[in-house]
Write a protein that binds this DNA or RNA. Structure first.
Lengths: 213, 213
DNA sequence: ACACAATCGACCATCATGGTCAATACATAT
DNA sequence: ATATGTATTGACCATGATGGTCGATTGTGT
């Protein structure tokens, strides 16, 4: 978590280049297997600089966890509008935020994922607690102030919500897998959003009360 | 793919021990990062034997792909009853087969998954074709001879099926994640099967035509 | 021209890797 | 018992990657 002050003073795009390179490497290989050599090559800096900014690998790692948590909070969690009480609409909204976040910070979500799973590296206590807080918050933002009355009466509401969530995540995962490798910037995403909305409509027809307009 | 004949002659449980150890290591770390040292330690054999049975790492890998494909075909794909025409019931059936398969051959599914994803190692042509055939077959067994008339008329059948599939996979993934680490043999799975069936019932109520009994 | 910070990459000790092979342990047959 | 042949081991090797250091070079501001 402790970096040299000089790091904060350098060009911001360079900072991002380094952070993104490091996050990508850690996300793909975990702490132990991640290579500082690959990071500096990817970031386009000399070896000396990395260990000048951050004393050692572990400090870099902890700084990244802190950074990733911060950025995820401000650019993801806080953008979720908790006043959208329709569950499916909220998931739609979250999907857009998630996509935008992924555009601006690829690998950050993956990185946090690997950090959460990783047993074999122990973080400082404060980071550890922030991590678990983060998970709870994410869960809460999904379900808080949701209008349960939209769901048809003949099914269990909790089960319905989870099924809806899983179905949507399944769609997203399949898309992600499909796009793997291709530069996402070069794809016209609109047709996929359209298709996504069609799926959401199906979910509404099936899980929500009959529309009596 | 080419192993020393002696391998086939040794004790069958020992064969399995070696194969499972190797599959686990490759599944968790991919081809390059997988360590033959860890494999022999896990299998409880000396270094010499591994390279006596299989000439080198790559031969071992190819033998494993062949083995995994065979076992998955005979113990998984071929067990699926294609005459169950109710989509959700077929998925239920597949879930049971999948669980049993996972019990007998942990890591095999993961292993094949990593093999499919891996670009940076090229298999012999025949294995490559068997791999893609395998994927097609798996897809076909899901949808062949399915009765589309069960789905309510006001939603797109294809979309409905995919949503159902994703929802169910989501449930299974969440369970898997939850069980991670704990020896699955020491858990009483029945309550989870019961819960699973409840979810299936919800899916039937929501996606199928109204039950007019 | 000077001071000082930023930056680089050759270099280091260490370690894990895939693979080898001389040496054993073991079994079987005579 | 002895001899023969096979199954098995693990110390050993060259190689390459690792995290980290540091003297040298470049750049900047005065």
């Amino acid at each position: 978590m402790h970096m040299n002050q000089t790091f904060k003073n350098i060009d911001e795009t360079k900072q991002k280049r380094i952070l993104n390179a490091a996050i990508k490497e850690f996300a793909e290989n975990g702490y132990e297997q991640a290579s500082t050599n690959k990071i500096i090559k990817d970031a386009g800096i000399g070896k000396g600089m990395l260990f000048h900014y951050f004393n050692n690998k572990k400090d870099l790692y902890e700084y990244l966890v802190d950074y990733a948590l911060n950025i995820t909070n401000t650019e993801y969690l806080q953008r979720i509008d908790i006043d959208e009480s329709d569950f499916i609409e909220r998931l739609k909204q979250i999907a857009r935020i998630k996509a935008e976040f992924h555009d601006n910070n690829p690998d950050v979500k993956n990185f946090i994922g690997t950090v959460v799973l990783n047993d074999d590296v122990e973080l400082p206590d404060d980071l550890e607690t922030r991590l678990s807080d983060f998970q709870k918050t994410g869960y809460a933002l999904l379900y808080k102030k949701i209008d349960k009355s939209l769901v048809r009466d003949d099914v269990d509401v909790e089960k319905a919500f989870r099924l809806i969530r899983w179905a949507i995540e399944g769609y997203q995962n399949e898309l992600m897998q499909q796009f793997q490798g291709e530069k996402i910037a070069h794809i016209d995403l609109q047709p996929y959003w359209d298709e996504f909305y069609e799926y959401l409509d199906v979910l509404k027809t099936t899980f929500y009360k009959e529309d009596r307009t």
